[in-house]
Design a protein around this nucleic acid. Structure first.
Lengths: 184, 184
DNA sequence: ATCCAAGCGGGACGAGTATCCCGATTGTGC
DNA sequence: GCACAATCGGGATACTCGTCCCGCTTGGAT
């Protein structure tokens, strides 16, 4: 691959990351091209479709989160690891409008991307959840889908106010719900 | 208004309700016209824009929910009233894809519609929440936006499985979080 | 039965967007 | 330097929708 092509590819990726984070997934490809200082043709040559572009970005972000999740799993007791992971996910995704949309379902399928063997977020997540369940830190009937749904709830909170205190409160409420035993 | 015009208006409203519930808010107007057996012109004459159509529908649904919420407020103790209202909202909205989208923010503004004086969902909701807070049934720092965010979370759960048991569990988890006191 | 305005159907139009294509340009091996 | 293939830019194309318009139809009052 020619050096300029490599530069352009990297630049498009960076700009797309920023743009999707700021404007959401509906940002036009032409806008990304403009900001990156290239033509639309250059974008679509490197990433044949818009989905291919978003996937490349998400793949990168997910792989970063997986690293931090593994650290948590290794250095904390099961309960703490799980709840810190929950907060970490929400904090990371909350500042990225594109990721929020993807999580909330109005976008492409994050799960499909997350199945990539080397970066398997799902496995780490399941491991953290299983550990927390076993340690009695979360109710035994909670599933991964429940956890994700609560994350989406925390992210939805951002629509009303970008108040960090409100975000913390939501995370706290969600975690309290996961922890509590079933009501009699 | 001529009798046939009245009939058509009603039919369009009914079909649009079903269609938005089943397909979501992105269902084309032309599709609604087709199902209603009328031309697109007929739809846009009765409802000048697509938003006007969705608003008419939401207005109707909200007014129904408000009636039931007022009943709850009148016949239950504050805590029970609030939690049953929470479950009621989720159950009602979960079966309507259009409403779910509107709640999750990827649509028009439900809050604006809900401000309609005679059908003020917000007031009832705030009243139920205040009552529950005062009775010590929910943590004192919870706001209406927090409650809505948790509802969105419960609705997000539906994307993975339409399992009624999972829905109940999510509602239970969310309510437990609202109830619990802040972690030390 | 007649008339005519209210109402209707559905095609025209325009906006927004992703994708493809091709003539112009530029990096790179020799 | 030179040649040429890889790469680029951005206009052309195709598609989906919402909204508007206009010639035809029909309800309902007389």
């Amino acid at each position: 691959m020619r050096a300029d092509a490599q530069r352009n590819r990297k630049r498009v990726l960076e700009v797309a990351l920023e743009t999707f984070a700021a404007e959401g997934l509906s940002a036009p490809v032409a806008e990304i091209a403009r900001r990156a200082g290239v033509g639309t043709g250059t974008v679509s040559r490197h990433f044949p479709t818009k989905d291919a572009l978003s996937e490349a970005i998400v793949l990168h972000l997910v792989s970063e989160i997986v690293v931090r999740a593994r650290e948590l799993a290794a250095t904390r007791d099961p309960g703490t690891a799980f709840f810190e992971f929950f907060a970490l996910m929400v904090e990371q995704i909350a500042v990225n409008r594109g990721l929020s949309q993807a999580m909330s379902g109005s976008g492409f399928d994050v799960e499909a991307v997350a199945f990539d063997p080397e970066r398997n977020l799902l496995t780490v997540e399941e491991g953290l959840l299983a550990g927390a369940r076993k340690a009695g830190a979360v109710r035994p009937d909670i599933t991964r889908a429940d956890v994700k749904a609560l994350m989406v709830g925390c992210l939805a909170r951002e629509q009303h106010a970008l108040d960090p205190q409100a975000r913390k409160r939501m995370i706290d409420v969600a975690c309290a719900g996961l922890r509590a035993q079933r009501q009699p």
